[in-house]
């Protein structure tokens, strides 16, 4: 292959990527500009802000206030718990032989079919009877429970890619199956856990449906409820809405940047490599 051809191909690749990058970035640029506009300027969508109108951020912070910390208090443990439950369920399913394991796996996976809107009312009763209505712990429980199908699916696949020889060798050495899981398998699976952590952080951080159904006060309301407040009813406060959105995206981005190295290795099972 000639050098010129290779160069032309690289140039083409770059061009396509840049075009896509512009398409991906344009709405975000508009959102960012909007977050700096004063109310009269908002009537012109594509104009530049005449000055940086920080009041939108101030309004966003005032409104988000405690809810931002609620979101962190909900998301961090819920991500950890949901990954753990996925690993706990995925482990036996990856190693069990026979049809009972397959049946349980199939059953758990069918949970992925269920649209969450249909569970709302029974869910409300459950959570209320457990005394967990409007609590952060209630949100942990719900996010963990509804993560069971996907996290099990994800972790089972990951564990299945870990060479079985490692498992058998450990058992021969007298290691109990439970000990193998905690001491050997989990530590060797950090990349898979990290990949799942990114996906779960995004899903839990952005949840609105469970939050609206199961929380009602500052004690437990996450930031998505406040953000949707800016966007709802008759009026939409675009300035603070965009400011709040941009701020609220930061933690998920941080999680992504933090875990992305492992993500590449972990998503498809690479512990053995």
């Amino acid at each position: 292959m000639s050098n010129a051809l290779a160069q032309r191909q690289t140039a083409l690749t770059r061009t396509i990527l840049i075009v896509f990058a512009i398409i991906f970035a344009a709405p975000l640029v508009v959102a960012t500009l909007t977050s700096f506009k004063s109310p009269p300027e908002l009537t012109r969508v594509l104009s530049l802000p005449s000055e940086l109108y920080w009041q939108n951020y101030q309004a966003a912070f005032e409104r988000m206030g405690r809810s931002f910390f609620n979101s962190i208090a909900i998301t961090v443990p819920a991500v950890a718990l949901s990954i753990l439950i996925g690993a706990v369920a995925g482990y036996p399913l990856a190693y069990m032989r026979g049809s009972s394991g397959k049946l349980v796996y199939f059953l758990l996976l069918t949970g992925m079919l269920v649209p969450f809107q249909i569970v709302q009312i029974p869910l409300f009763f459950l959570i209320q009877r457990l005394g967990l209505y409007d609590t952060i712990a209630g949100m942990w429980l719900v996010h963990t429970a509804y993560a069971v199908p996907f996290c099990t699916f994800f972790m089972r696949n990951f564990f299945a890619s870990v060479p079985r020889s490692m498992y058998e060798a450990a058992l021969i050495d007298g290691c109990s199956p439970a000990r193998y899981f905690w001491k050997l398998l989990l530590p060797a699976s950090t990349s898979g856990l990290a990949a799942l952590a990114i996906i779960q952080s995004r899903a839990i951080w952005n949840d609105l449906l469970f939050a609206i159904t199961l929380t009602s006060s500052d004690a437990a309301r996450p930031v998505t409820v406040e953000i949707s407040g800016f966007a709802s009813s008759l009026q939409v406060e675009y300035g603070p809405l965009m400011a709040a959105t941009l701020v609220s995206v930061l933690p998920v981005m941080a999680a992504y940047l933090l875990f992305q190295k492992s993500f590449v290795r972990g998503l498809l099972g690479g512990a053995g490599k």
């Binding site: 369920a89 036996p92 069990m96 758990l108 249909i118 569970v119 029974p122 899981f181």
Partner: peptide, 25 residues
């Protein structure tokens, strides 16, 4: 036994949070 113990909690959560709401729907 270990396998069953590991599966107990996820399956319990699944039944409570998926099966019961579906039946109620």
């Amino acid at each position: 036994r270990t396998h069953i113990a590991f599966l107990a909690l996820p399956v319990a959560l699944f039944v409570t949070f998926y099966i019961y709401p579906i039946i109620s729907s």
